[in-house]
Every structure is written in structure tokens, then in C-alpha cells.
Design a binder for these strands. Structure first.
Lengths: 289, 289
DNA sequence: GTCAGTTTGTAATGTTTGTTACAGGATTGC
DNA sequence: GCAATCCTGTAACAAACATTACAAACTGAC
């Protein structure tokens, strides 16, 4: 009664026969609505006969089609009454912005297809205080690099936001070596300067990592870690929201990875800040140091 | 076929007889699941007899119970397949990162409680080319101001990102008047410099607008438009993702509001860029000018 | 208080539906 | 290449279902 039926079907997909799988797929493709009609409708949609449907739901553990539907309805009921679903249905009822819907979908899809190892690996790399971090972004994504640098600087030392005139970049490139990690934000159209910077850094032995769109920046060829994000929205612009979500998860991850040191640094900074600007109201704990 | 049945029932509630209303209420209380079982189940849940249910759905305009259910199922199908609903239902299964779930929830809740008029009003204000725009953010949110400025600069003229040393701000403040619009990103803890900047700008007649967290920056007191966003996440940091989502919707809105001029500017910029840097591959259309 | 109109439930009905027995067909193992 | 097993669809069946006819109960008006 507790486990979602959809998961059960997915896990046990191999137990079914060939035509039963057709039934399973038809149901999953339009879950759970496909199971709420008649057996004949279900059978037609799956391209099989009615008895096959019955055998399918029998193998799932239901004594009859009626019980199967009852389970579907009760699942649907609790799902639709959850606060999360409520806000979702209420929104598009009263004309929720389709743009916002697409934004949410992008973030969700981005993390659904993000290789878990890549994310964890990059977090560990960024948390390594023996490395020096260099963050850089393109025309639009530089704000993200800046945002992330502002947080990481509080959590750890050796964080550098590569910004400003292109001429300055050369200075930063000069000292780079195996102890440096470069995190690049880059979406199309991929700026040649960024690519050149990445290539130069890699040539000097620095580890290059990349947060990009699904089409993948050319930097991806030389990067050790690549995190692709969805950017398409109903607008002439691409959306960087999913990139930002990745940035925030990275920030949280690095903070978690090095919790006690991060806290110490936060407190020291807090004290420093109060000494410099006593007008600012003080708080002993909290994030915004 | 298009209008949601739930609305129809709500509107026409007075047309029904007393017991039919009981049926209507039972359906609305557990919509649409209650209508997907048998007539007898529906009748029992509503505390009426089966024929009353039939008369009820007959009055709704359906020739029979089967057609009524068909309508419910098709409604449910399209609703569950919308990107909004998907993000709500799918995220908590397949063990997605709880942090990501919270991020999505924040964005959703933010827009659910955003006064529609405020958003539209602010977009119109930002789209007004007779005004000069000044964007400014705090320690962490300055990246957002930068991000938004980078886009708006392409869509329209007179966009200024107030950045750098605090001393420079004074210069920008000097010339301000009723023709200036200040858009401030500010989350706790609210920096006194930002508040001072806002107050000074307001005193000189500029329109002050604000994107902030739910606790509301003190700037809110003097702001003409205030858009609050959810920022809580399971991390010592606050999340600015919902602020960024607002920024992107604003960008898209301003672009839409002034489409032909934006396109002209994009093309001119494209040409300019190619003249300066011929190595960059050229595209005649597209966002990333 | 009575009558007309409306509303509601009971009970019967005809149909659709889920269900099952069975036979043809495919597949696998020897 | 044969046989045994498993899979799948056809067709018949019985139960559950939506549906309808009808009578009782209620309501409001005169």
C-alpha cells in the first residue's frame, strides 16, 4: 500500500513476458491514467488483448482489475493532495506563467541527468584547500562565477574570480600549475576568449572543470568534470537558472565537506566585519557573514 | 473540451438541486479521483443514491457516466504531463537530491505568491526606455544584478550596473532624478550600504524597486515595487535561485514588451561584434549577441 | 389543507465489463 | 528436428455496471 506502483513496475520489468511488457510500457507512458479506463481501452492502447492486461495486473499482485484501479486511485488521491502537487495544480489553474513551468522543468531535468559521480567528484575537488580556485564566466554567466566566488571565499581560502579586462587574465594565467583548479561557466555562444583561457590553463597543468549547456562548450573536450544544464525557455534568451542551481548545490556541497573550517572562517569574518563597521547589527551565527 | 470541469461545476453550483450539490461537493473535495470509480462508490461517498449522480452528471452536459469519466481522464492526463506537475510529482521519487527538491519548491512557491500586478507593473517600468535603469546588489546578489544588466543592456539603452567601490556609487547617485529607476537585489542580512543607496536615490526622486527575500529588506518601505522570493534551503546559506528566476522572468518580459526594438539592437550589436572580432563565428539570429 | 410541481430513492433492466476456459502458436531445450 | 513448455489471443460467461421507469416524499402556493 505504501510503495508507489510505478517503481514496482519499473523494477520488476524483467519478470514480465514480451507482451506484458508492452502493457507495462503503455501504462508507464501514461501513468496512471491509462489504468483508470476499461480493460479493453488499456488493451487497445497497449496493442495487446484484454486477457494479457489481466495477466499483467495479476502478476503485479492484484486479485482483479478492480483492486488494481483502487490502488491507482488511492495513490493519485494522496499525490494530488500533497502540498507540492497542490501548488502545482493551483498555479496552472489560475494561469501560472508557462515560462516558470519551463524553468522548473529545466532545473529538474538537469539534475535528473547529472551524473552523480561528477557532482560529488567536483565538490571534493573544489573543497580541497590545497588547490587554488579560479572561477570565470562568459558574457552572461560571469555573474554566476561572481556569485559562487562570493560564497566560496567565505568557506575556504584561495578563491579567485577571474574578472575584468581580458588583459588581466594573462597575469592570472602566468602562475598556474597542477595546484590550480579552473571552474568555467560557459553557455552558447561560446566565447573564444573563454575557450582560449581554458586551453592555456590546461596546458600549464591546471585542472579544468566546466558548467555548460546541453550542447556542450568546446571547453568540454579538455575538462576533467563537465556538468551540463538545460537552458531552453520560451524566450529569445537562454536560461541560466539551472546553471545557478548547480552552482548552489556545489556551494552547499563544499560547505558541507568542510563544515568546521567553514564555520571558523565565518566567525572570524563576522568579528572582523564588526570591528570595521560597528553600525552593522551583529549576529553570532548565520550564513550571511 | 477545453474548460476545466472543476471551474464549470463551481460556477454553476446554483443550478443544481440540494442533493445534486452534495454530489458536486463530494466530487470537488476529491477531484477528480472521486469521479473515476463507479457510480455506486460516488453515490455512497456523497451520501446520495446512484440516480442522483447520474442526474448530476447529466446536468453537467454529459450524455452518460462513461463520457464524464473520459473527460476526467483526459483532463488528468494533460495536467500530469505539464512540466509544472511533472516537477512536483517526479522529484520526490527516484531519490532526487532533497536540496534540489527544496530549490524547485522555492521557485514554485515564489511565483505562486507573487502578486501578478507587481510583476507586470515592474516589467512595464523596466521596459520604459525613457527611464534610466540602475541595478545594484548586495555581497551575494550583486552577481544577479550583473547578470540582469548584461541582458537588459542588449534589449534597451540606459542600463547601468552599479558596481565596484562604494565611493563610486556617489557619482552615480549625483545625477539621479524622477527619470531614474533603481532595481535592488537584497537578501538578509541586509547591507546598510545598499539601504543607504536606496534611500538616497528615493530622496532624489528616483523610483526604487526591490527583489528580496520573504523577510523583506528595509528597502521595501520606500520601494514602489517589491517582489519577495523564497530563499530557505537545507544549508547554512540562503538560496538566491528564486531571485534569479524572477530576474529571468523580468528579462523575458522586458524583451517581449519591446520586441522589435530589442531585435534591431541585437542585430546591430551582432554586426558590430563581427567587425571588431572576425574570428567569432557569425550567426544572423539568436540570443547570444 | 390540498394540490401541482419538483425532487429523490427503489427496483428492474439491458448492456457493458471483467473474467476464465481453451486452443493455436511461438519458443526453448535436448 | 522433435517435444514439452510457455505465451498469447479468441470466444463464451457471469457478474457488475450504468441506466431508466416509476412511485414515494417533499416543497411551496393558493
Amino acid at each position: 500500500m505504501e510503495r508507489p506502483l510505478l517503481e514496482d513496475i519499473r523494477d520488476r520489468l524483467d519478470e514480465f513476458t514480451a507482451t506484458e511488457k508492452k502493457a507495462a510500457h503503455a501504462l508507464m507512458a501514461n501513468y496512471p491514467v491509462q489504468g483508470l479506463g476499461t480493460v479493453a481501452q488499456f488493451a487497445e492502447a497497449a496493442g495487446v488483448s484484454s486477457p494479457t492486461i489481466l495477466r499483467f495486473i495479476g502478476r503485479l499482485g492484484f486479485p482483479g482489475f478492480a483492486e488494481f484501479q483502487k490502488k491507482l486511485r488511492s495513490e493519485l488521491e494522496s499525490q494530488l493532495n500533497s502540498p507540492l502537487a497542490r501548488s502545482a495544480t493551483l498555479e496552472d489553474e489560475q494561469g501560472g506563467d508557462p515560462h516558470v513551468g519551463q524553468l522548473l522543468e529545466n532545473v529538474r531535468e538537469t539534475f535528473a541527468h547529472l551524473p552523480r559521480g561528477e557532482l560529488e567528484g567536483l565538490i571534493r575537488l573544489l573543497a580541497d584547500e590545497k588547490k587554488t580556485l579560479h572561477l570565470i564566466g562568459g558574457r552572461f554567466t560571469d555573474g554566476l562565477a561572481r556569485y559562487m566566488a562570493a560564497h566560496l571565499r567565505i568557506v575556504r581560502s584561495g578563491v579567485n574570480h577571474v574578472a575584468g579586462q581580458q588583459g588581466n587574465w594573462l597575469d592570472q594565467l602566468l602562475g598556474m600549475g597542477p595546484k590550480d583548479v579552473v571552474l568555467i561557466f560557459d553557455i552558447r555562444r561560446y566565447q573564444t576568449e573563454i575557450v582560449q583561457f581554458a586551453e592555456a590553463a590546461a596546458k600549464q597543468g591546471a585542472t579544468v572543470t566546466l558548467v555548460t549547456d546541453s550542447w556542450m562548450s568546446p571547453v568540454g573536450r579538455i575538462a576533467s568534470f563537465v556538468l551540463p544544464a538545460r537552458v531552453a525557455v520560451p524566450s529569445p534568451w537562454d536560461s541560466s537558472l539551472a546553471l545557478m542551481a548547480i552552482a548552489e548545490v556545489l556551494i552547499a556541497g563544499v560547505t558541507r565537506e568542510n563544515q568546521q573550517r567553514a564555520q571558523e572562517r565565518m566567525q572570524s569574518l563576522e568579528i572582523l566585519r564588526n570591528e570595521i563597521d560597528p553600525t552593522t547589527e551583529s549576529r553570532t551565527t548565520g550564513p550571511d557573514v
